[in-house]
Amino acid sequence: MNKPFFRGLRDGIPIALGYFSVSFGFGILCINLGLSVLAAAGISLTNLTSAGQVAGVRIIAAGGTLIEMALTQLVINLRYSLFAISLSQKLDSSFTTPHRIAASFGITDEIFAVTYAQEGKVKPAYMYGVILISALGWVGGTALGAAMGQILPEMVSSAMGIMLYCMFLAIFVPPARKDRGVLMAVIVAALCSILFNTVLTFVSGGFAVIISALVSAALCALLFPVAEEEEAAA
């Protein structure tokens, strides 16, 4: 019996449950945007990321360019590089290059947080366990949400369109309450985004998000530089 693998499965259960309910909303969003159940589940299986997928399906629905798609994913998911770098310092010696190539697929905010919080070095089997159960929740929720979205009453499915955005609020409001820098980043990004949506409407949605986020994050990086310990705890 492979113990680290089963420990990973167990530690991944809360992630899987959280992913299931949120990806249910993503599945419904896909149907509302005119995508098929198969496309929705395929996107969740190959991407395993929430914000990037929401931005991605919006670009698909709007018929955006591939450059826009690639740049949007790059900016939105750039944080995974930081997680990957942090996690790379904590890997067991059994974490060889092939294992790194395989396990990197599952670096998400939550999987990173759980894996990074482990005492001692991280073994590949442990990370595979966390990833497997989390991905099951994410893809299963998406497929079910997309399938239900086709049969649910219009009123219910449209009300669920707000679900993912509510989850985003739950991610950025609490840190913004505690940290002036994050509060400023959130406010400036929101103001830029509103400006793009009302005045500068010739800029497409994906680029509007990228520019808003970069301007805001760069400004805050200059005004409120993050100390080393703070960054490690984030």
Partner: peptide, 12 residues
């Protein structure tokens, strides 16, 4: 890198 996730989520 620290601020980007929050800024992205807010703009989205």
């Amino acid at each position: 890198l620290h601020y980007i996730p929050y800024a992205v989520l807010s703009a989205m």
